[in-house]
Nucleic acid binder design. Structure first.
Length: 477
RNA sequence: GGCCCGUUCGUCUAACGGUUAGGACGCAAGAUUCUCAAUCUUGUAAUAGGGGUUCGAUUCCCCUACGGGCUACCA
């Protein structure tokens, strides 16, 4: 598609934190804007007085910023636009594209229930569609409450969706829906249109749950004489149970991912693959690369199931591709006090040794503990396997002695020393490597033993070996 | 109930109407290695069902089934 400088928007309601579905919608809008050199705008749909909370607005901003989805211009707040909406409602009334409906809520509810028990379906019957002038002014002077309904024209309405293709609806299936409530406030299908128009939105990219709203909104555009934007509806994101992703499915808030140590680039990478086909076998993309290759018509029609395992894998790839400095900064951003007593240089070397083994910033922190603290316990299985008896102890003791006499403490030096001991004793190096590793880290996993030792330094290594010697073998002599 | 949309390995996804239906995650096995991880190799596993159209359907059409969305004085 060769849209020139499109303007798109993300329009969340601040009734909760930014969740994965919203983040994906925001991301695709952002990618579309960036790809076509357009603008990505924000609109806060805060007209739901009951559920909207200001703190959520801030959280949404924070989440978007964290994801790297910067927006253009100042966000638009619907709560500040009441006058504009009233103006448009009056125009709609004046042009007779809409009308006042004096039917009471109770009356309508009754009719709906009746209809539903009989045929199952209900649409407003148009009772007030053509009331006489006299009746209307009579109701108005007596302050009879009313809503405003759009006069839905009878026609076959078609629109083109960039993802779903052509969609056709018979508007006879749509009743004269309400555009203004009895308190004068406009409803969603009206404000969305007014705002999108006023914001100069050229492409409305939103969730698939809005497909059925689209014909209604198109009728509003027409009634208002506004040009109709283009539409693209994104398929839903499901949980593993094939139901719309929600809190039930565990972590769904963007902030939870941040707090769990995922890199923003990993999340956007994963989210982009949820419903979009990059048209290459490549799977790991930076946000910038995504923007370059994003094509809205390569978006899938069917809903995608969220798969945490794949996200985790992608996260690991991003960690691996990150520079140690970025990872260090990332950890400090999460956790400003992280190992504050250590030299930055040392921390960075620790990260260097571990980044291949971690899938998130949190894991990176978790598996680095032994670089800073002597082991509090030793992996039991490994202890039994690699330090069965006193012969191991004597080997380790011998290694300690060699280390004591070692000149300069280097990775190569400690390795050579170990291999010499092993050779002298006629055993494989592994026989000694395992117990030494256990002594130093307490666990049977980790980077190259000698790299570890090089970084830990002579003093720490010898202290830990001594500690282990006092403790092992666990039983017998 | 009505309207709209969808359906390829467990999951994310490829395949001008002609492929041994491909890749990725996961899982399993092997290689490698001082362990773990990473990496590499191999394996596992899919066109929802039924009708058409066609020399030939994953691909086009219809029906059924299943799933989802909407059907508010929510957004």
């Amino acid at each position: 598609m060769n849209s020139k400088n499109p303007r798109v928007r993300f329009a969340p309601s601040p009734t909760g934190e930014l969740h994965l579905g919203g983040a994906r919608t925001a991301l695709f809008n952002w990618l579309f804007a960036r790809h076509h050199d357009g603008q990505f705008l924000l609109r806060i749909e805060d007209t739901d007085q009951v559920r909207s909370r200001e703190e959520f607005t801030q959280q949404i901003f924070d989440s978007l910023s964290w994801l790297g989805l910067a927006w253009d211009e100042e966000p638009l707040y619907q709560s500040k636009r009441g006058d504009r909406y009233s103006e448009m409602i009056n125009i709609l009334l004046a042009t007779e594209d809409s009308y006042r409906c004096f039917c009471s809520k109770e009356e309508l509810t009754r009719k709906r229930e009746e209809a539903q028990s009989e045929s199952g379906g209900y649409m407003y019957d148009g009772t007030c569609r053509s009331l006489s002038e006299e009746l209307i002014s009579e109701k108005l002077t007596s302050n009879h409450p009313f809503v405003v309904r759009l006069k839905v024209p009878r026609t076959i309405l078609k629109f083109r969706d960039h993802i779903y293709g052509e969609i056709q609806v018979n508007t006879e299936e749509i009743d004269d829906f309400i555009v203004a409530r009895s308190d004068g406030n406009p409803t969603y299908n009206l404000v969305a249109v007014i705002d999108d128009h006023d914001m100069g939105i050229t492409h409305v990219i939103r969730g698939e749950d809005h497909v059925s709203n689209t014909p209604k909104q198109i009728m509003v555009y027409e009634a208002l004489g506004f040009p109709i934007p283009e539409f693209a509806h994104l398929p839903m994101i499901f949980g593993p149970d094939k139901r719309r992703l929600s809190k039930r499915h565990g972590a769904t808030g963007v902030q939870e991912y941040r707090d769990n140590g995922y890199l923003p680039g990993a999340l956007t990478n994963y989210l982009s693959l949820l419903g979009w086909n990059p048209d290459t076998e490549k799977e790991i993309f930076s946000l910038h690369e995504l923007a370059q290759s994003f094509q809205i018509n390569q978006v899938q029609k069917k809903p995608a199931v969220y798969d945490e395992k794949k996200l985790h894998w992608i996260s690991g790839q991003h960690i691996f591709n990150s520079t140690v400095n970025d990872l260090f900064e990332g950890i400090r951003k999460m956790n400003p006090d992280w190992r504050g007593e250590e030299e930055d240089e040392f921390l960075i070397e620790v990260i260097e040794l571990l980044k291949l083994r971690a899938k998130s910033l949190t894991e990176l922190q978790d598996i680095s503990e032994y670089f800073f603290e002597d082991p509090k316990s030793y992996d039991e299985k490994s202890s039994r396997k690699h330090w069965k008896d006193n012969t191991v102890s004597s080997l380790v003791r011998q290694y300690c002695e060699t280390l004591n006499t070692l000149g300069e403490w280097t990775e190569d030096g400690v390795e050579q020393a170990l291999r010499n001991v092993a050779e002298d004793e006629g055993i494989s190096a592994g026989k000694l490597i395992h117990p030494v590793r256990l002594s130093l880290s307490g666990i049977p996993a980790g980077p190259s033993l000698f790299a570890m030792m090089g970084l830990l330094g002579r003093e720490t290594c010898l202290r830990r070996l001594e500690l282990a010697l006092q403790r092992f073998p666990l039983q017998g002599t």
